[in-house]
Simulated scan of single mutants.
Amino acid sequence: MVGVGGVANSGVIWSGSNYGPSVLLSAPAVGIVTTGTTSPYRKGTGTSEATAYVSGAAALLREKYPDLTVGQLVNRLAKSAGLPASAKGLSLPDQKYGYGFIQPLAALKRDIPAGPKNGPLKMPKAQASSAGGESAGSGGDNSKSPGKNGQQAAEEKSGGLSTGVIIGIAAAVLVVVAVVVILVVRGKKRRNGPPAGGPGGPGGYGGGYGGGYGGPSGYAPQQPNPYQQQAGSPGAYPPAPPTQPPGQ
């Protein structure tokens, strides 16, 4: 992370600038022409404008020196930075100016050694300890070293573990989804299948209870008519007379 402070047009620190040990560079912050909301352009003041200057300068350096690390690009900005006459002799980085206000043209053209890959950027404690105690401003240029330091190895190892955990979780989810699909398919087959009796079952075509279509003769037995009285029974009607006389 690069902390940015703001300076006035004279190069002197702006009264509303950020202060602290995180400031590494400073840039113009007063009366900067920028886009507006009520009009196309306006003049703004603040460290946001100063940060935009630093970002633009870093983009120019990245275009010209694509092989440099971020720390080495910041190193070029720091080594080419300027200070007002009133700030000469300060111990750098200063908590107001950092290494000074940026000078993009000088950063692009000056012959500045690449330096260590982290440049003036401060390394986290864990990274510094795993790198063998190498500080941000010490050591030679190790940007072309093919080996991997302890921090890189630890990151790869932790990344592998994370990948394994993710694969395990994904496999478990797939198993659960497969089980759910199987249960749903079976449930649909049971609901859409033939009736419980089916052909040949109780109450089906193969002989249901009470003599259905599957009775002994293949047809349902004729049920007696409750209103029909059998001949010879008391109160029965006499049989109908013959339609022709006897002997004919």
Score class of each variant (00 low, 15 high):
V2M: 03
G5V: 01
G5W: 02
S10F: 03
W14Y: 09
S15V: 04
S17C: 01
P21T: 06
P21S: 08
L25G: 01
A27W: 00
P28W: 00
A29D: 00
V30S: 00
V30C: 01
I32V: 09
T34C: 02
T35P: 01
T37S: 12
T37K: 11
R42L: 08
R42G: 10
R42N: 10
T45H: 05
G46Q: 04
G46H: 02
S48R: 05
A52H: 11
A52T: 13
S55N: 08
A58N: 01
A59E: 09
L60N: 04
L60G: 01
L61P: 03
L61N: 05
E63L: 06
E63Y: 05
K64M: 03
D67W: 03
L68H: 04
T69W: 04
Q72N: 02
R76V: 12
R76A: 09
R76S: 06
L77W: 00
L77N: 06
A78N: 02
A78R: 07
K79C: 12
S80M: 09
P84Y: 08
A85L: 14
A87F: 11
P93V: 12
D94Q: 12
I102V: 14
P104H: 12
A106Q: 13
K109P: 01
R110V: 04
D111H: 06
G115W: 01
P116Y: 05
P116R: 07
N118D: 11
M123Y: 02
Q127C: 11
Q127N: 11
A128Q: 14
G132W: 08
G133M: 12
G133W: 10
G139W: 10
D141W: 13
N142V: 09
K144D: 10
P146Q: 11
K148R: 11
A153D: 07
A154V: 08
A154G: 03
K157I: 07
K157N: 07
S158Y: 08
S158L: 14
L161A: 13
G164R: 08
G164P: 01
I166K: 15
I169C: 13
A171F: 13
A171S: 12
A172M: 15
A172I: 15
V180Y: 14
V181Y: 08
L183T: 13
L183Y: 15
V185W: 12
V185T: 11
K188M: 12
R190P: 04
R190N: 15
R190E: 15
N192A: 15
P194I: 07
A196N: 12
A196T: 14
A196D: 15
G198M: 09
P199K: 09
P202N: 15
P202Y: 10
P202A: 15
P202M: 14
G204D: 06
G206M: 11
G211K: 08
G214R: 05
G214P: 02
S217L: 10
G218V: 03
G218W: 00
G218F: 03
P221C: 06
Q222S: 11
Q222M: 04
Y227E: 07
Q228M: 03
Q228S: 04
Q230V: 04
S233N: 08
P234K: 07
P234E: 15
P234N: 08
Y237H: 10
P238R: 03
P238I: 01
P245Q: 04
